[in-house]
Amino acid sequence: MTAFFTMILGSFTIPMRIGTDPASMLWLLPLSVSIAVVYKATKVHRVQLRSFAREAAVLFGSILIFILVAAVILYGIAWVVTEQLPGLLDKSAF
């Protein structure tokens, strides 16, 4: 029993191996679920399982959509700055 608890506690002392690849962005999802659930828990008038779950899911979906929209906009800006702008600046030099 003590060994089991030591093993559990020990697992909290070593960081996980997470790469810096795009897949690491998926760690946003559980956090967004948590934010949606806690925010809705403070906002709904009465907590009833089905309606609460539906409202939290809608909020999670909205957060996800806004993250995707922000990602597309930032990708577009980065594409213009890195791919298009250098060419335009070269042509306008003379």
Binding site: P15, W27, A41, T42, V47
Partner: peptide, 22 residues
Amino acid sequence: RAVIIFVAIVLTFLVGVYVGSV
């Protein structure tokens, strides 16, 4: 409401400590 808040916050905190270490 209290149970939902407790579970969501404690779970988020524990996941953070597990992922990054104490």
